[in-house]
Design a protein around this nucleic acid. Structure first.
Lengths: 396, 396
DNA sequence: CTTCTTTGTCCTGTGAGTGGAGAAAGTTGT
DNA sequence: ACAACTTTCTCCACTCACAGGACAAAGAAG
């Protein structure tokens, strides 16, 4: 099959495409209600989109008391590839143009192996998805990496946890390999876009999305747009000081949030607690696996282990303190907590909420939901699809 | 004189008006270079603006190698009133449409006296400026208040330091008194807009503007627009925890930044230090005035008093720590320090810089200027003019 | 005084977009 | 079964924004 290459010719078409992406199949009449165009003009633009192949007819809708409408929808054969590179694993998924996940693979991987090795794995996963019949090719790809990105060029810059990637032309390389347009962003930003598109942050314009995984980051959405900062490092809250003269951090400072709470820190603490004989639960798990991860702590906590619960609570308190500061500063309409540690669930959430509601001003917290992300591992790849579709569905 | 009431009829006219405001008198040819319109269309729109009276002819410009151009400029008789209400004083100024300050008054005042008393004073100051011949009336007014504002309505909400103002319809009341359109905003946001318009932040899209006066606040500018947050309390950084289990704060928590460093806290510390005999300089000033303010500390520091310098340095360190967190989070292109304590000058600035450059990631600080505001007391009133002119120079 | 440059005006053609008429395709009531 | 009303979609004529070129005005340079 030949891949689609057309792009919207003007702002109207771009708006229509995004509408069809976000709201699914629609009739011309329904579209007209949402784009502020006369019916005639709208019909012309829809017809042109049909000509390009980006949009196809989708049969008749049920009557609403009169003539039945002819639905149109985004071409169901369009395929986007979403790639979410984490510190210790990769997610690769295929979506259609409405960003529904058609297939999803996850594999462990160490990002420190460098871009060449990682790309080899990503491409083989993508090939596997293609081979399973989900896609014959890709019309675009979005990719998230766990570090700052110079967004316009799609190049990681000075990423602390993935040194080999500094300056590697991710966008260009992947675009060449896949033969389609590619956009690159920070993984946390993609999670925020995912939750905005299809998760808890639907219809929220200004929100924060805190991702607690191997590290800690925060996606910042202002007026529906991701704020990336002047050097692409906005949201890098892992190295905000949470504990004066606290633990030494890999960054060279002391007391960074990430040194006190993150997937990595939590695992370290758990091993230590097990070694000190504070928790039989953790000790037995350590003996069984030879090591501990955040998943073990979550399981121990679920089993009622007091030490595990304490570790989670203390981490949540630290994180909550930092988030409280961000809430005072940014005054968001929603705070989403996501990432690998969401398995820690409501113990974590309760600790964070307590700190934020206690420390931030009532005006900022009065009507502020603090919730877990609802997309789990899909958030990143859906966000990736959103990223590339935002790009492709803009006038060339 | 009859006041102007016209508004731009379309986006082109709005853009032209803002261009003339920001760049001063201009010829049609120069305008054409900046607005991406054909010469004919541009001439039409300029002519229409001339008809409204918002814009007037301004003679011939020098030749640039050919026919001399006919300059146009904003009507020089337009007058904006800028009002900056602080905790302990009011600034009232008159500007022309190019936001040049034509006259400026400052008077001590206690905002806690409530809106009625304060407005009486503001109106008498405005009357004085009118009486001195600077204006025959006002075409618009901007007003800043030291607390959160529900921006669309122009109403303060839950302002901690000005309880009597909660819900008072500032915009409506002032508009009725002055007989012209009024816009209301937080004073810190106005300072940010002022520095953006005519100060150190010219041509910077994303920056933070930290105002340290009686309290501490932070203006947040994203893509040239002020970010106010969902409830208008964005930038309220005075109650971010700077010292765990630190001093009690009026807000009920402990260790808030504002409790440890602000005009008020600094004065308190200075009195205490003088009482403990730590500084002869401060003690003699205390004896002379009966009280101390940030100005006294600044003077003592300038005279080399070690205690005063220590107070400033410690406050700067606290502030710098908080700003470091905000820099990591927001990744701005510039940080402006302003407000009453800028008199503390480079001692303060050095302390802040040290903390930020040490604690934030190199990628975020690598090319980050941290500078004092350059407009001083004019920042707020110029920002107020910018606010109302942005409003009036938008299509109705 | 000629030639070149810049500025500003006039005029016409083009294409985007609106709004209404009317056809097509339904539903509901009698 | 037929009339009356709704909703959807198409077609067409008209308006208006805008571009782009021709041209006039005004000055500089030789």
């Amino acid at each position: 099959m030949r891949r689609m290459t057309a792009r919207p010719a003007n702002a109207h078409q771009a708006k229509l495409l995004k509408l069809l992406r976000d709201a699914g199949p629609n009739s011309r009449a329904q579209l007209g209600d949402q784009v502020d165009l006369s019916r005639s003009k709208l019909a012309v633009e829809v017809d042109r989109l049909l000509e390009t192949g980006l949009v196809v007819a989708d049969g008749l809708a049920a009557s609403r008391g009169g003539r039945r409408s002819h639905n149109v929808r985004l071409n169901p054969e369009l395929r986007f590839l979403g790639v979410d590179i984490g510190a210790t694993s990769v997610d690769v998924a295929v979506t259609n143009a409405e960003l529904e996940v058609l297939g999803h693979l996850n594999q462990p991987m160490d990002v420190r192996e460098g871009p060449v090795a990682v790309f080899e794995q990503v491409l083989s996963m993508a090939a596997k998805l293609r081979a399973s019949g989900l896609a014959e090719g890709f019309d675009g790809a979005g990719i998230g990496v766990p570090g700052p990105v110079r967004f316009p060029e799609g190049v990681p810059v000075a990423p602390p946890i993935m040194p080999g990637w500094d300056g590697f032309p991710v966008r260009e390389a992947l675009s060449q390999e896949l033969g389609c347009p590619v956009m690159v962003d920070n993984d946390v930003n993609l999670m925020a876009m995912g939750e905005m598109h299809a998760g808890v942050a639907r219809s929220v314009g200004d929100f924060l999305c805190v991702k607690i995984g191997t590290g800690i980051g925060c996606g910042i959405v202002v007026g529906g747009e991701v704020h990336r900062g002047v050097t692409g490092s906005a949201g890098d809250i892992g190295h905000i000081q949470a504990v004066p003269d606290g633990r030494p951090c890999a960054c060279g400072n002391r007391g960074c949030l990430e040194a006190h709470f993150s997937g990595a820190a939590l695992a370290r603490d758990a091993v230590e607690a097990a070694g000190q004989g504070l928790s039989e639960e953790l000790a037995s798990r350590l003996a069984a696996h030879g090591t501990l991860t955040a998943v073990d702590v979550a399981a121990a906590a679920a089993a009622g282990d007091a030490t595990a619960l304490d570790l989670i609570r203390e981490g949540g308190n630290r994180t909550g303190q930092v988030i409280a500061g961000l809430v005072s500063f940014f005054n968001p309409g929603l705070v989403v907590i996501g990432g690998g540690v969401t398995g820690l669930g409501h113990t974590l959430l309760a600790a964070i909420r307590t700190q934020v509601y206690r420390q931030s001003l009532p005006l900022a917290t009065g009507n502020l939901p603090i919730v877990l992300g609802e997309l789990g591992p899909n958030a990143g790849v859906i966000g990736a699809g959103r990223l590339i579709s935002d790009h492709l569905f803009s006038p060339a």
